[in-house]
């Protein structure tokens, strides 16, 4: 029950199948890294899990703590505790981070209950300190004019504020220099615990030096082709994905995680 469970998922966009029978189970309290070459469908998986309207699910199911979430609207999934740290977060001109997050936190309260402003700001500042973000950030418009590193920090700030049950981090390391990477990793590590399950999508092993995963999965051509412990990441770093890509056409049945 206490897991995010994906079974035999098949997903298409414009008649092209991107995810081709993927299964994966992420229990609460664990961090699962998904690694794979460009175009393997990693980001598609992130978007499909959170309900992006572009994709067509042709088979399979996704259960969050036992509940099928594929029929739910994106905002319903979010309020039930599923979070996505976007690879390319959208800009929202004129809406400050403070107001945006406040609306998001408010959306999780029971109807009629008003968010206590002082508590909210206390928590916001605490999380910003954790991510070494200047307080002036709260009055900037969401992601507008942000550097790549600032955008990623802002995603982790939202993760910290919204306290989801499951989080998908899509290429959170891309576009970060080593100092920013350490700050972001520190933020994620501080949220680690028995109440959070994480899918960490990354192209490079580098991030996994700072966020140590419990499991590593290799994704190629819309399937998980191999799963292992954290040492698998090092092997991939050394040997690359070629060996998997050469065998991909021979894989008849999807590999199970």
């Amino acid at each position: 029950m206490n897991k995010l469970s994906i079974t035999n998922l098949r997903v298409s966009i414009a008649d092209q199948e991107i995810i081709r029978g993927l299964s994966l189970a992420v229990p609460k309290g664990e961090i699962h890294a998904i690694m794979g070459p460009n175009g393997s469908g990693k980001s598609t998986l992130a978007k499909v899990l959170t309900g992006h309207p572009d994709y067509k699910i042709t088979a399979g199911e996704v259960l969050m703590d036992g509940e099928n979430i594929l029929a739910l609207a994106p905002d319903e999934r979010a309020r039930k505790g599923l979070f996505l740290a976007f690879q390319y977060p959208s800009e929202i001109p004129g809406v400050t981070i403070a107001n945006f997050l406040r609306a998001a936190v408010q959306a999780r309260l029971p109807e009629g209950e008003e968010l206590e402003a002082t508590d909210y700001y206390a928590k916001l500042y605490e999380k910003m300190d954790l991510l070494e973000m200047d307080r002036s950030f709260t009055s900037r418009s969401v992601n507008e004019g942000f550097s790549g590193g600032e955008k990623k920090r802002n995603e982790i700030l939202q993760l910290a504020m919204l306290q989801p049950k499951y989080a998908v981090l899509d290429e959170t390391d891309s576009g970060l220099d080593i100092d920013a990477l350490k700050v972001v990793a520190h933020g994620v590590n501080s949220l680690r615990g028995p109440n959070l399950g994480v899918i960490l999508i990354t192209h490079y092993q580098r991030l996994l030096d700072y966020i140590i995963p419990d499991h590593v999965h290799v994704m190629v051509q819309g399937r998980i082709v191999r799963s292992g412990g954290k040492e698998l990441a090092l092997e991939l770093e050394e040997k690359g994905y070629e060996s998997y890509e050469t065998v991909k056409d021979e894989i008849g049945e999807p590999a199970m995680a």
């Binding site: 309900g51 905002d75 979010a78 979070f83 976007f86 959208s90 997050l101 959306a107 999780r108």
Partner: peptide, 11 residues
């Protein structure tokens, strides 16, 4: 942009 905001729990 709308999807991004919905992902944060807004209708």
């Amino acid at each position: 942009q709308i999807f991004y905001m919905q992902q944060r729990g807004l209708t």
